[in-house]
Simulated scan of single mutants.
Amino acid sequence: MAKSIFISILEKDEAKGKGLFQTVTRYGLGVNGHFWSDNLEKMEWAGPIGEMEKPEVGVWLIKGGKASFENPETRFGLGLLAAAVQARRGHGFPILCICDDGELDPATLPTMLRGAEVVDEAKLGAKLAAKANMPIKKVAAEYRFDLYSLPSLGLWLEVGPAPGHEWKGALLGVCDGDDSDAGIGAHGVGPAGQLPEKCVLNYPMKGLKMELGGKEFIGWAVKNELSENESYFVKVSGTPEALLFGEFPDGDDAEFYSLQLK
């Protein structure tokens, strides 16, 4: 199976896109891609999910100027798209970034992109060929995290225990940051991999306040026991700055996972 690259170009520049596509094809790789859209209301960031989950796609390449990589709306969409791709292809799926003007430190990106590699465009072809044809590195995650972008139902997040583990209850909180409309509107529990049509919630809770790293989170929770085949689903509104989630705490001890979204 011939390998291909999916490219996201953060600014609409036809010449930039044409040159990049030509570079990729010279190395015998297939190529597909798009110009990035910051239309968060229509969740257009989710458009490439169907393409990038195809097994022949071996690398996601993101190219743009430093200002685009620093734009909160762009970062929010890129982070969610990365989470969706990692849920389908694994956390070791290769993500490469090209910054057109200045230095880009992956540690400053949303959590889901911090494993990305910043590359020099002058050496791009050989790097892509090598990455695309290598088996995807298996990276074990301590949790499951996926999402569903449904125009009629909104954005739903799915969290649950990693394979071989279970949670005695689940909690998810959001930090609104600079978006006063960010929050939680609904939640449910059901089989992993699909939004539940009906569910029974054990001791559902709303409005729980937590603090981590100087950020305040407002969370919802349930005490349903979750196996690796069951998940907690939460509908999120707006564009939260960060998420906090994990097993519902037993006593004062709590171990949560935090994802920076912007």
Results as ranks from 00 to 15, higher is better:
Met1His: 05
Ala2Glu: 08
Ile5Ser: 01
Ile7Thr: 09
Ser8Trp: 03
Ile9Tyr: 04
Ala15Gln: 13
Gly19Phe: 04
Gly19Ala: 12
Leu20Ile: 13
Phe21Cys: 05
Phe21Ala: 14
Thr23Cys: 08
Tyr27Arg: 12
Leu29Phe: 05
Gly30Gln: 02
Val31Asp: 06
Asn32Val: 06
His34Ser: 14
Asp38Ile: 10
Asp38Leu: 03
Leu40Pro: 03
Glu44Thr: 05
Gly47Val: 14
Gly47Ile: 13
Met52Tyr: 03
Val57Ile: 07
Gly64Met: 05
Gly64Thr: 09
Gly65Ser: 06
Gly65Arg: 13
Ala67Phe: 09
Pro72Thr: 04
Arg75Asn: 07
Leu78Gly: 07
Ala82Glu: 09
Val85Phe: 11
Arg88Pro: 04
Phe93Gln: 10
Pro94Phe: 11
Glu103Ser: 15
Asp105Asn: 14
Ala107Arg: 02
Leu109Arg: 01
Val119Trp: 10
Asp120Arg: 12
Asp120Gln: 14
Ala122Asp: 15
Ala126Cys: 03
Lys127Cys: 04
Lys127Ser: 11
Lys127Met: 03
Lys127Asn: 02
Lys127Glu: 13
Ala132His: 06
Arg144Gln: 14
Arg144Ile: 06
Asp146Met: 04
Ser152Met: 02
Trp156Ala: 08
Leu157Ile: 15
Pro163Asn: 13
Leu171His: 00
Gly173Cys: 03
Val174Asn: 01
Cys175Phe: 01
Asp178Ile: 12
Ala182Leu: 12
Gly183Arg: 12
Ala186His: 09
Gly188Asp: 13
Val189Leu: 01
Gly190Trp: 00
Leu201His: 08
Pro204Lys: 06
Gly207Glu: 07
Met210Gln: 01
Met210Ser: 00
Gly214Ser: 00
Lys215Leu: 11
Gly219Arg: 03
Lys223Gln: 15
Asn224Trp: 11
Ser227Asn: 12
Lys235Met: 08
Val236Trp: 11
Thr239Tyr: 06
Leu244Ala: 04
Glu247Gln: 15
Gly251Trp: 11
Asp252Trp: 05
Tyr257Ile: 09
Leu259Val: 15
